[in-house]
Simulated scan of single mutants.
Amino acid sequence: MTRQQMAYLACTAAVVAAGLGAAPPTDHPTVHRVSPGESIQKAVNTAKPGDAIVLSPGTYHESVRITVPGLTLRGWSARSTVIVPGPSSADSTCAKAGHGICVTGKDSSPVTDVTVRSLTLRGFAKNGLWASGTDRLTVRQVTSENNGQWGFAQEQSVRGVFRDNVAQGNGDAGLFLANTVIAEQGARDTKGAVVRHNRLLGNRIGLTVRRLRNLAVDHNEATGNCVGVFVVGDENRPLPGALSVRHNYIHDNNKYCAKTARLPFLQGSGIVLTGTEDTLVAHNRVEDNRGKSPLSGGIVLFKNFKGAPNQRIEIRDNVVQRNGTADLANRDTGKGNGFHGNACAVSQPAGMC
Protein backbone atom coordinates (compact mmCIF):
# COMPACT_ATOMS: atom_id res chain seq x y z
CA MET A 1 0.00 0.00 0.00
CA THR A 2 1.44 3.37 -0.97
CA ARG A 3 1.91 6.26 1.44
CA GLN A 4 -0.77 8.18 -0.43
CA GLN A 5 -3.29 5.33 0.04
CA MET A 6 -2.40 5.01 3.75
CA ALA A 7 -2.88 8.74 4.27
CA TYR A 8 -6.27 8.64 2.51
CA LEU A 9 -7.50 5.73 4.66
CA ALA A 10 -6.32 7.42 7.84
CA CYS A 11 -8.08 10.63 6.90
CA THR A 12 -11.30 8.75 6.03
CA ALA A 13 -11.26 6.86 9.34
CA ALA A 14 -10.79 10.08 11.25
CA VAL A 15 -13.73 11.72 9.47
CA VAL A 16 -15.98 8.71 10.11
CA ALA A 17 -14.96 8.55 13.76
CA ALA A 18 -15.57 12.24 14.20
CA GLY A 19 -18.96 11.95 12.55
CA LEU A 20 -19.95 9.03 14.73
CA GLY A 21 -18.84 10.84 17.82
CA ALA A 22 -20.82 13.95 16.90
CA ALA A 23 -24.08 12.24 15.92
CA PRO A 24 -26.80 12.38 18.60
CA PRO A 25 -28.63 9.16 19.47
CA THR A 26 -31.72 8.53 17.33
CA ASP A 27 -35.08 8.05 19.05
CA HIS A 28 -37.04 5.37 17.21
CA PRO A 29 -40.81 5.19 17.63
CA THR A 30 -41.94 2.33 19.85
CA VAL A 31 -44.74 -0.09 19.06
CA HIS A 32 -46.75 -0.96 22.17
CA ARG A 33 -48.78 -4.15 21.81
CA VAL A 34 -51.91 -4.64 23.89
CA SER A 35 -54.02 -7.79 24.26
CA PRO A 36 -57.55 -8.22 25.66
CA GLY A 37 -57.47 -7.98 29.45
CA GLU A 38 -54.59 -5.49 29.33
CA SER A 39 -55.06 -1.73 29.62
CA ILE A 40 -55.00 0.39 26.49
CA GLN A 41 -54.88 3.52 28.65
CA LYS A 42 -51.76 2.28 30.42
CA ALA A 43 -50.03 1.90 27.07
CA VAL A 44 -51.16 5.40 26.04
CA ASN A 45 -49.84 6.84 29.29
CA THR A 46 -46.37 5.40 28.67
CA ALA A 47 -46.24 6.27 24.96
CA LYS A 48 -44.12 9.06 23.52
CA PRO A 49 -44.87 11.25 20.48
CA GLY A 50 -44.71 9.19 17.32
CA ASP A 51 -45.32 5.84 19.02
CA ALA A 52 -47.92 3.30 17.88
CA ILE A 53 -50.26 1.22 20.02
CA VAL A 54 -51.43 -1.96 18.29
CA LEU A 55 -54.43 -3.82 19.69
CA SER A 56 -54.76 -7.56 19.20
CA PRO A 57 -58.14 -9.02 18.18
CA GLY A 58 -60.67 -9.18 20.98
CA THR A 59 -62.93 -7.01 23.13
CA TYR A 60 -61.63 -4.25 25.39
CA HIS A 61 -63.80 -2.90 28.22
CA GLU A 62 -62.62 0.66 28.79
CA SER A 63 -62.47 4.24 27.57
CA VAL A 64 -59.25 5.75 26.26
CA ARG A 65 -58.01 9.36 26.43
CA ILE A 66 -55.25 10.45 24.03
CA THR A 67 -53.25 13.67 24.52
CA VAL A 68 -49.94 12.49 23.03
CA PRO A 69 -49.11 14.12 19.67
CA GLY A 70 -48.25 11.87 16.77
CA LEU A 71 -49.70 8.78 18.44
CA THR A 72 -51.30 6.01 16.38
CA LEU A 73 -53.93 3.76 17.99
CA ARG A 74 -54.63 0.84 15.67
CA GLY A 75 -56.71 -2.28 16.02
CA TRP A 76 -56.31 -5.50 14.08
CA SER A 77 -59.44 -4.69 12.06
CA ALA A 78 -62.82 -3.08 12.67
CA ARG A 79 -64.45 -6.50 12.81
CA SER A 80 -62.01 -8.11 15.21
CA THR A 81 -60.95 -5.34 17.62
CA VAL A 82 -63.85 -3.91 19.64
CA ILE A 83 -63.90 -1.33 22.43
CA VAL A 84 -66.99 -1.24 24.67
CA PRO A 85 -67.77 0.54 27.96
CA GLY A 86 -66.01 -0.65 31.07
CA PRO A 87 -65.82 0.44 34.70
CA SER A 88 -65.34 4.21 35.07
CA SER A 89 -62.30 5.00 37.21
CA ALA A 90 -62.06 8.20 39.22
CA ASP A 91 -59.32 9.63 36.99
CA SER A 92 -60.92 8.67 33.67
CA THR A 93 -62.54 11.86 32.39
CA CYS A 94 -63.31 10.18 29.07
CA ALA A 95 -65.17 7.30 30.67
CA LYS A 96 -67.06 9.58 33.07
CA ALA A 97 -68.21 11.68 30.10
CA GLY A 98 -69.57 8.55 28.43
CA HIS A 99 -67.17 8.48 25.46
CA GLY A 100 -65.21 5.59 23.97
CA ILE A 101 -62.07 7.33 22.70
CA CYS A 102 -61.25 10.96 23.53
CA VAL A 103 -58.58 12.87 21.60
CA THR A 104 -58.20 16.14 23.46
CA GLY A 105 -55.96 19.16 23.28
CA LYS A 106 -56.65 22.86 23.75
CA ASP A 107 -57.99 25.30 21.22
CA SER A 108 -54.85 27.40 21.74
CA SER A 109 -52.52 24.37 21.84
CA PRO A 110 -54.05 21.48 19.86
CA VAL A 111 -52.86 17.90 19.99
CA THR A 112 -51.43 17.11 16.55
CA ASP A 113 -51.19 14.20 14.12
CA VAL A 114 -53.09 11.57 16.09
CA THR A 115 -54.40 8.58 14.12
CA VAL A 116 -57.16 6.17 15.18
CA ARG A 117 -57.88 3.29 12.83
CA SER A 118 -59.12 -0.26 12.28
CA LEU A 119 -61.36 -0.90 15.29
CA THR A 120 -64.98 -0.71 16.50
CA LEU A 121 -66.45 1.55 19.17
CA ARG A 122 -69.79 0.30 20.46
CA GLY A 123 -72.44 1.10 23.02
CA PHE A 124 -71.10 4.21 24.76
CA ALA A 125 -73.56 6.44 26.58
CA LYS A 126 -72.42 9.55 24.73
CA ASN A 127 -70.03 9.34 21.78
CA GLY A 128 -67.95 6.61 20.23
CA LEU A 129 -65.11 9.01 19.45
CA TRP A 130 -64.89 12.55 20.82
CA ALA A 131 -62.22 14.98 19.61
CA SER A 132 -61.63 18.55 20.77
CA GLY A 133 -58.64 20.80 20.16
CA THR A 134 -56.98 18.69 17.46
CA ASP A 135 -54.92 19.38 14.35
CA ARG A 136 -54.64 16.77 11.58
CA LEU A 137 -56.54 14.08 13.43
CA THR A 138 -57.07 11.06 11.16
CA VAL A 139 -59.86 8.56 11.83
CA ARG A 140 -59.91 5.74 9.31
CA GLN A 141 -61.56 2.32 8.97
CA VAL A 142 -63.33 2.70 12.32
CA THR A 143 -66.88 1.53 13.01
CA SER A 144 -68.82 3.52 15.62
CA GLU A 145 -72.21 2.03 16.36
CA ASN A 146 -75.11 2.15 18.80
CA ASN A 147 -73.76 5.05 20.84
CA GLY A 148 -76.10 7.37 22.71
CA GLN A 149 -75.34 10.62 20.87
CA TRP A 150 -72.73 10.81 18.11
CA GLY A 151 -70.72 8.10 16.44
CA PHE A 152 -67.79 10.42 15.69
CA ALA A 153 -67.68 14.04 16.90
CA GLN A 154 -65.12 16.79 16.53
CA GLU A 155 -65.02 20.45 17.63
CA GLN A 156 -62.48 23.26 17.84
CA SER A 157 -60.26 21.43 15.39
CA VAL A 158 -58.59 21.84 12.02
CA ARG A 159 -57.41 19.67 9.13
CA GLY A 160 -59.23 16.56 10.35
CA VAL A 161 -59.62 13.54 8.06
CA PHE A 162 -62.53 11.11 8.51
CA ARG A 163 -62.24 8.43 5.86
CA ASP A 164 -63.52 4.89 5.21
CA ASN A 165 -65.50 4.75 8.46
CA VAL A 166 -68.93 3.33 9.33
CA ALA A 167 -71.32 5.14 11.68
CA GLN A 168 -74.45 3.14 12.40
CA GLY A 169 -77.40 3.31 14.79
CA ASN A 170 -76.21 6.30 16.82
CA GLY A 171 -78.69 8.44 18.76
CA ASP A 172 -78.02 11.68 16.90
CA ALA A 173 -75.49 12.17 14.08
CA GLY A 174 -73.29 9.37 12.85
CA LEU A 175 -70.61 11.97 12.13
CA PHE A 176 -70.77 15.41 13.75
CA LEU A 177 -68.33 18.22 12.97
CA ALA A 178 -68.75 21.63 14.62
CA ASN A 179 -66.98 24.84 15.51
CA THR A 180 -67.76 24.37 19.20
CA VAL A 181 -70.50 22.75 21.22
CA ILE A 182 -70.20 24.96 24.30
CA ALA A 183 -70.99 28.45 22.94
CA GLU A 184 -72.72 30.40 20.19
CA GLN A 185 -69.90 31.46 17.88
CA GLY A 186 -69.22 32.22 14.25
CA ALA A 187 -68.04 29.54 11.86
CA ARG A 188 -64.53 28.13 12.19
CA ASP A 189 -62.18 27.63 9.24
CA THR A 190 -61.23 23.94 9.30
CA LYS A 191 -58.28 24.62 6.96
CA GLY A 192 -59.31 21.82 4.65
CA ALA A 193 -60.98 19.09 6.70
CA VAL A 194 -62.07 16.03 4.70
CA VAL A 195 -65.05 13.69 5.11
CA ARG A 196 -64.68 10.97 2.49
CA HIS A 197 -65.80 7.41 1.72
CA ASN A 198 -67.78 6.97 4.95
CA ARG A 199 -71.00 4.94 5.34
CA LEU A 200 -73.63 6.57 7.56
CA LEU A 201 -76.44 4.15 8.34
CA GLY A 202 -79.55 4.34 10.51
CA ASN A 203 -78.61 7.33 12.65
CA ARG A 204 -80.84 10.31 13.39
CA ILE A 205 -78.72 12.35 10.97
CA GLY A 206 -76.02 10.78 8.84
CA LEU A 207 -73.63 13.74 8.78
CA THR A 208 -74.02 17.10 10.54
CA VAL A 209 -71.67 19.95 9.59
CA ARG A 210 -72.38 22.82 11.99
CA ARG A 211 -70.90 26.33 11.73
CA LEU A 212 -67.79 25.41 9.76
CA ARG A 213 -65.96 26.69 6.70
CA ASN A 214 -63.51 25.23 4.19
CA LEU A 215 -64.09 21.49 4.16
CA ALA A 216 -64.94 18.79 1.63
CA VAL A 217 -67.69 16.18 1.96
CA ASP A 218 -67.38 13.69 -0.88
CA HIS A 219 -67.96 10.07 -1.90
CA ASN A 220 -69.94 9.17 1.21
CA GLU A 221 -73.09 7.02 1.44
CA ALA A 222 -75.93 7.97 3.79
CA THR A 223 -79.03 5.77 4.07
CA GLY A 224 -81.63 4.81 6.66
CA ASN A 225 -81.26 8.07 8.60
CA CYS A 226 -83.91 10.75 9.14
CA VAL A 227 -81.65 13.21 7.26
CA GLY A 228 -78.70 12.16 5.13
CA VAL A 229 -76.51 15.29 5.23
CA PHE A 230 -77.32 18.42 7.25
CA VAL A 231 -75.21 21.58 6.79
CA VAL A 232 -76.21 23.97 9.57
CA GLY A 233 -75.58 27.67 10.08
CA ASP A 234 -77.07 30.65 11.86
CA GLU A 235 -76.74 34.41 12.13
CA ASN A 236 -73.33 34.39 13.90
CA ARG A 237 -70.33 35.74 11.96
CA PRO A 238 -68.53 34.54 10.02
CA LEU A 239 -71.24 32.48 8.38
CA PRO A 240 -70.58 28.82 7.61
CA GLY A 241 -69.85 27.90 4.03
CA ALA A 242 -67.03 27.91 1.49
CA LEU A 243 -67.40 24.13 1.45
CA SER A 244 -68.35 21.42 -1.03
CA VAL A 245 -70.72 18.44 -0.96
CA ARG A 246 -69.92 16.30 -4.00
CA HIS A 247 -70.19 12.78 -5.40
CA ASN A 248 -72.18 11.39 -2.46
CA TYR A 249 -74.88 8.71 -2.62
CA ILE A 250 -77.77 9.81 -0.38
CA HIS A 251 -80.78 7.49 -0.50
CA ASP A 252 -83.74 6.12 1.48
CA ASN A 253 -83.31 8.35 4.51
CA ASN A 254 -86.87 7.77 5.65
CA LYS A 255 -86.53 7.11 9.36
CA TYR A 256 -88.87 9.22 11.54
CA CYS A 257 -87.37 11.49 14.21
CA ALA A 258 -89.54 13.55 16.56
CA LYS A 259 -89.29 17.33 16.69
CA THR A 260 -86.91 19.14 19.05
CA ALA A 261 -86.75 22.66 20.45
CA ARG A 262 -84.90 23.80 17.34
CA LEU A 263 -86.19 21.54 14.58
CA PRO A 264 -89.51 20.15 13.36
CA PHE A 265 -89.89 16.40 13.03
CA LEU A 266 -87.45 14.93 10.50
CA GLN A 267 -88.08 12.33 7.83
CA GLY A 268 -87.20 11.84 4.19
CA SER A 269 -84.46 14.47 3.80
CA GLY A 270 -81.46 13.88 1.56
CA ILE A 271 -79.24 16.99 1.73
CA VAL A 272 -80.41 20.01 3.75
CA LEU A 273 -78.66 23.38 4.01
CA THR A 274 -79.67 26.08 6.49
CA GLY A 275 -78.02 29.46 7.04
CA THR A 276 -74.94 28.81 4.88
CA GLU A 277 -73.13 30.69 2.11
CA ASP A 278 -70.87 30.06 -0.90
CA THR A 279 -71.36 26.28 -0.92
CA LEU A 280 -71.22 23.86 -3.86
CA VAL A 281 -73.55 20.84 -3.98
CA ALA A 282 -72.67 18.92 -7.14
CA HIS A 283 -72.59 15.48 -8.77
CA ASN A 284 -74.49 13.79 -5.94
CA ARG A 285 -77.01 10.98 -6.40
CA VAL A 286 -79.98 11.70 -4.14
CA GLU A 287 -82.83 9.19 -4.40
CA ASP A 288 -85.93 7.88 -2.63
CA ASN A 289 -85.92 10.19 0.38
CA ARG A 290 -89.59 10.66 1.25
CA GLY A 291 -91.46 12.41 4.03
CA LYS A 292 -93.80 15.26 4.92
CA SER A 293 -91.56 17.29 7.20
CA PRO A 294 -90.86 20.93 6.27
CA LEU A 295 -87.32 19.68 5.61
CA SER A 296 -88.32 16.68 3.48
CA GLY A 297 -87.03 16.36 -0.05
CA GLY A 298 -83.98 15.45 -2.08
CA ILE A 299 -81.91 18.65 -1.84
CA VAL A 300 -83.49 21.35 0.35
CA LEU A 301 -82.62 24.96 1.12
CA PHE A 302 -84.27 26.10 4.35
CA LYS A 303 -83.92 29.05 6.70
CA ASN A 304 -82.38 28.07 9.99
CA PHE A 305 -84.36 28.16 13.24
CA LYS A 306 -83.41 31.82 13.80
CA GLY A 307 -84.31 32.80 10.25
CA ALA A 308 -80.80 33.08 8.78
CA PRO A 309 -81.02 32.44 5.00
CA ASN A 310 -78.73 30.57 2.63
CA GLN A 311 -76.77 32.77 0.23
CA ARG A 312 -74.93 31.99 -3.01
CA ILE A 313 -75.47 28.23 -2.91
CA GLU A 314 -74.75 26.45 -6.21
CA ILE A 315 -76.69 23.20 -6.72
CA ARG A 316 -75.73 21.66 -10.04
CA ASP A 317 -75.30 18.44 -11.98
CA ASN A 318 -76.96 16.22 -9.37
CA VAL A 319 -79.21 13.22 -10.06
CA VAL A 320 -82.19 13.79 -7.77
CA GLN A 321 -85.00 11.25 -8.24
CA ARG A 322 -88.13 9.92 -6.52
CA ASN A 323 -87.89 12.20 -3.50
CA GLY A 324 -90.90 13.60 -1.65
CA THR A 325 -92.27 16.12 -1.26
CA ALA A 326 -89.87 17.35 -3.97
CA ASP A 327 -86.57 16.47 -5.57
CA LEU A 328 -85.33 20.06 -5.31
CA ALA A 329 -86.84 22.48 -2.80
CA ASN A 330 -85.96 26.12 -2.25
CA ARG A 331 -87.90 27.04 0.91
CA ASP A 332 -85.70 30.00 1.59
CA THR A 333 -85.54 33.73 0.92
CA GLY A 334 -81.76 33.97 0.47
CA LYS A 335 -80.15 35.66 -2.52
CA GLY A 336 -77.92 34.28 -5.26
CA ASN A 337 -78.85 30.60 -4.90
CA GLY A 338 -78.77 28.67 -8.17
CA PHE A 339 -80.06 25.31 -9.45
CA HIS A 340 -78.47 24.21 -12.75
CA GLY A 341 -78.17 21.00 -14.74
CA ASN A 342 -79.85 18.71 -12.22
CA ALA A 343 -81.73 15.59 -13.36
CA CYS A 344 -84.99 15.69 -11.41
CA ALA A 345 -88.77 15.55 -11.84
CA VAL A 346 -90.41 17.73 -9.17
CA SER A 347 -89.23 21.01 -7.71
CA GLN A 348 -90.60 23.60 -5.26
CA PRO A 349 -91.09 26.14 -6.66
CA ALA A 350 -91.68 24.60 -10.08
CA GLY A 351 -89.28 25.19 -12.94
CA MET A 352 -85.95 24.20 -11.31
CA CYS A 353 -85.81 20.75 -12.95
Rank of each mutant, 00 (worst) to 15 (best):
R33S: 14
A178M: 11
P264W: 08
S132I: 01
P87A: 14
V209Y: 01
P240F: 04
G268E: 15
F152R: 10
L243T: 12
G174Y: 04
N253K: 08
G128R: 12
G202S: 02
T104S: 15
A345T: 15
A13Q: 06
V229P: 12
A183Q: 03
R262Q: 15
N225K: 12
G19I: 08
A95Y: 08
D317K: 05
V245L: 02
Q141R: 15
V232S: 07
D172K: 02
R140F: 06
S89F: 02
G100C: 04
Q185K: 00
V103K: 12
A23H: 11
H251P: 02
K42V: 15
C257M: 03
Y256N: 14
L9M: 12
G100P: 09
G224R: 07
V231Y: 14
G202V: 04
F162A: 11
A173V: 08
Q4D: 14
N304K: 04
F162I: 09
N214D: 15
R285T: 13
S39I: 15
C344D: 11
Q154N: 02
G151V: 09
V161S: 14
D172L: 06
S80F: 07
R33E: 14
I271H: 09
G160P: 02
T260A: 12
P294I: 08
A90Y: 07
H283D: 09
K106S: 03
G228D: 02
V44R: 11
V44P: 13
G86S: 00
L207H: 04
R246E: 10
H283F: 12
G75H: 14
G324V: 13
A90D: 05
C11E: 12
R237I: 06
T112K: 15
Q168Y: 04
F302V: 06
V181Y: 11
V82L: 00
S144R: 01
P25A: 06
E184L: 08
G123C: 10
E314M: 03
G70K: 02
G123V: 15
R290M: 14
R117A: 01
V346C: 01
H61N: 10
R74D: 12
G105T: 10
I182A: 06
N165M: 11
A308Y: 05
V209E: 10
N248Y: 05
A178H: 13
T59Q: 11
R316I: 02
A222P: 09
V161M: 08
G19M: 05
P25M: 07
V300W: 06
T208E: 15
G351V: 06
N198T: 02
A22G: 11
T279M: 00
A187S: 07
N323H: 08
R331F: 13
P240Y: 00
I83V: 12
D172A: 07
L207Y: 00
L263K: 02
A97P: 01
L201W: 01
G105P: 06
L273Y: 14
Q185I: 02
A153T: 04
F162V: 09
Q4W: 13
P294E: 07
K106F: 04
A10G: 05
D27H: 03
G133W: 05
F265M: 05
T138R: 14
R204F: 10
V84E: 02
K306I: 01
P25Y: 05
L328T: 15
W130E: 12
R262F: 15
N179Q: 03
V166D: 05
P36K: 13
G98V: 14
G21C: 06
G174A: 10
E287D: 05
F124H: 01
C226R: 01
Q4T: 15
T46K: 08
L215F: 06
S244K: 01
